[in-house]
Write a protein that binds this DNA or RNA. Structure first.
Ligand SMILES: [Mn+2]
Ligand SMILES: [Mn+2]
Ligand SMILES: [Zn+2]
Ligand SMILES: [Zn+2]
Lengths: 150, 150
DNA sequence: TATTAAAATGATTCTTACTATCAATTGACA
DNA sequence: TGTCAATTGATAGTAAGAATCATTTTAATA
């Protein structure tokens, strides 16, 4: 399944149109896999290829891409939304580790939530379709700095 | 372990003072267990008992209580922070179910994250001290409305 | 290809959750 | 009770993001 081939179809299905601005924003996200970009950061990158684009359009496009489940919205409690390319069709989400000391963000490749979701669905009769999971703690580097000899 | 008895001690340990405003804000949170109050909502409630309090003080107090791990900060992506009384000492967190259709929030009493955290700690050498977990999906009521006969 | 209606854009203003500032007040300790 | 640092309330300021609207562009049709 390729995002680029179906992007126009996904838009058409909802009555939306494919514009150069929308392509340019999606391109930025595709060229920054592993990053967690703010809307302002996306705006700065997209202006390099599409200098006439307005910030409002980036805000609108990023909301559209989230609605289409092409990208995921994240928040690391710094007051602004961040975005990353979603897994697009796979029911596999990755999680984030947030170091309380250095603020670095690490990716957890594994999902590992299936068993929990089954328990939740059974007990609470709630059909889970998505989840957002953040782990807070101490990263390897920071732990080494605090305990140099261990 | 009682919050009220140790609140003053927890403050003193960090050089903070116990004020009537701080007590009043904590009282509001204690009297609204199960709710997820915004700072503005806390302000409205606390004014009933403490009419002279300023909004800025509520913002400051709520940050202080979070720093002391007495309350937890939540966000349901509506643009403002929400707070609830923490479990205070117990290593037991509850999660939240968010219905995509009616917007209702449900509480998951069980933590269920221990096994996952052990896997994460082992593979990523990241010492997990906290987590925030949200499940999105369809609640029981909304599912019944969409499938009346099943 | 030209026509056309609806959707999208960019510039701008507006909203609002939250922060910073500061003079006045209060709490903890001696 | 007196001292002084911490705290408060009023107010102004900040910034992410939403709303507005005249102009432009897209995609379907002829
Ligand atoms: Mn990520
Ligand atoms: Mn809760
Ligand atoms: Zn670290
Ligand atoms: Zn519902």
């Amino acid at each position: 399944m390729n995002i680029n081939n179906t992007f126009k179809d996904m838009l058409k299905e909802k009555g939306y149109k494919l514009t150069t601005q929308r392509r340019a924003v999606l391109d930025v996200l595709q060229n920054h896999i592993g990053d967690h970009l703010t809307t302002e950061e996306i705006y700065q990158y997209v202006k390099l290829q599409c200098p006439e684009i307005g910030l409002a359009t980036v805000y609108r496009t990023v909301q559209l891409l989230e609605e289409l489940k092409i990208i995921d919205r994240l928040t690391f409690d710094d007051g602004c939304n961040r975005y990353e390319l979603g897994t697009f069709g796979e029911d596999h989400h990755h999680h984030h580790l947030i170091c309380d000391f250095c603020g670095q963000i690490f990716e957890v490749e594994e999902d590992l939530m299936d068993a929990i979701e089954i328990q939740v669905e059974k007990k609470y009769k709630f059909q889970v379709t998505n989840h957002k999971v953040k782990f807070y703690g101490i990263c390897h580097q920071c732990h080494a700095k605090k305990h140099p000899t261990s």
